[in-house]
Structures are given as structure tokens and as C-alpha cells.
Amino acid sequence: MTRYIIQRLVYMFITLFLIATFSFFLMKFLPGTPLTAEDKLSEAQKAIVMEKYGLNEPVPVQYAKYMTGLAQGDLGVSFQFDNREVTQIIMERIGPSAMLGAQSMAVGTILGMLLGLVSAIYHNGFLDYGSTFVAVVGKSIPSFVFAGLLQYFVAVRLGWLPVALWEGWEYSILPTIALAIFPIAIAARFMRTEMLEVLGSDYITTARAKGVNKFGVVFKHGLRNALIPLITVLGPLAISLMTGTFVIEQIFAVPGLGEQFVTSVTTNDFPVIMGTTLLIAFLFITIVLVVDLLYGVIDPRIRLTEGE
């Protein structure tokens, strides 16, 4: 097991290195420079700035310098945001994004699983149709539509919660709900399908033949067997929610990473693009590892044995 994890960590390192390399060169292919938008600067001034940030050097040299910095944990300095360090910018911005992501993931997974379970237990009944309807609506209507509706009804008309901004926990409730709709739909759909399949399997009949009641059949025998496909889709979904969702952050004026990322791309802010890309990549491959390890926890057949 330990050997497996070490092996995976080495692979993760290689993956990150490759991602850093590819995104660096891809980024250099982007049209324009960080100074494209600066009309007021003269050519000579631009040359000075380019010189200062090393942007006039050949691309391989820039790459070598960037990677050396990266190896020392230095993500460089932003071109746009008052010369602040990229690490500092990301640290500041990841907070709200991660909080929104984690909250909506937790709410979404729990509610979605419950909906899916209800669907499976009352298969083809009224509750099943109701929960399937919720899942279809959640999956097909984009989250910004819900965001707008929530803002209008809950915040403006009823005045229960703030419309936007980020000044306390209550400001996170509406964006959390808007973001949670999608994971609710996904979790409900997967849970329903998997649980129905599991409930039709032979070992469930065995459990019923033992006299196990419905609750025991679903939770003790069914749930664990139905979880594998669910965590496969929920892992990556969690990352995309936690690393910032541009649209929702814009609508609710949340100072998050998603908004930051998009601004940095439109302004050719190379260090920030690189930093954010690497952070998302790092989180992604970490979650993939965690999901792989969870498989083993959930299903003993996937568990690794030492020294075989």
C-alpha cells in the first residue's frame, strides 16, 4: 500500500511537470503580450517593461527560468495586479471559491444521494417521478438561471438574504444553493440507477431471505455497492466547483478564483494563468488519487494487497 502511494506520488509529480510544460508553451502561442491593452505606453516604455519581466528573451530561456522558480515554490509576480506575487493572489482568492465549492458539494451530494435513494426505493412511484423531475431540471437548466431566480425571489422580493457580495457567511448561502443544483442532479441520477441495479441483484435476495428489513437492505447491503460509480463522477465535479465557477462568482460578485482566472487569460497575465492552471491540475490529480484510494475502502475486491 505504502509503495503504491509513493508510486502514485511520483506519477503525480511527472504529470504536474508535463502540465506545466504544455501550458507554458501553449500560453506563449496566445496572440498578444501582456502590454497589448496599454495604449498609452510608448514603444520604448514597452521595451523597458518587456526587458524587466524577461519577456524579450527566447521562449526556451523564459521556460527554463519559470521552471527554476517553480521548483523553488516561486510562481512569479502578476503583470496586472499591482506587481503582487501570484501565490499571494491565489491564496487570497481560493478561500471564497473553496468555501462555496465545499458547501455546494456537501449539500449537493447529500441531498442528491437521498433523492436517488428515495427514487430507487419507491421505484416507479410518485416519489420516484418527483425526484427524477428534480434531477432532470437540475441537470438541464444552467446554474445561472437558478442564480438569477434565487436573487430575484429570495433576496430582492423576500429580502431574506443578501443579493450579492462577500461579507459574511450568509452571503454564501444563495451561491451555494445555485451551485448545488448540478451536483444534486448528478448524484440523484447515479444513485438511482446504481441502487436499482444493486437492489435487483442476487445478494439482496439473500439478505431479504435472511429477514433483513427494507432499511437494512438499502443501507447495510445496497449503499456500499452502489457508491463506486458515484464517487467516480463526484470527485472531478468537486474540483471544478471548488476551483471557482466563473459565472456564479460573477453573478454574486464573489471575489473568487474563477473570476480571477478569466481576467488573467484576457489580459495575458502569464504568471497568474500558469499559477491557477497548476493549482487546478494539482487539485485534480490529488482528487483522482483520493478517489482511487476510496475505491479500495468501499470495495474490498479493489483493495491492494502488500507484496504480491
Binding site: D202, Y203, T205, T206, G211, V212, N225
Partner: peptide, 28 residues
């Protein structure tokens, strides 16, 4: 009723199934 049957199943009446490869819970 189902509740009453649950008290009898596995106690007074029990069953052996055809395919042992699928009739045991793989995660228990």
C-alpha cells in the same frame, strides 16, 4: 404483512440460492 414475514424469513424458513458467485454481498 412484509413486517411479519421478516420475522419468519431466515428464522423458520430459509433459502439456499443457485449461484454462489452472486448470492453473497461482495462488500461485506
Amino acid at each position: 404483512s412484509e413486517k411479519q414475514m421478516q420475522k419468519i424469513r431466515g428464522k423458520d424458513l430459509s433459502m439456499i440460492f443457485q449461484d454462489p458467485m452472486t448470492s453473497l454481498n461482495p462488500t461485506m
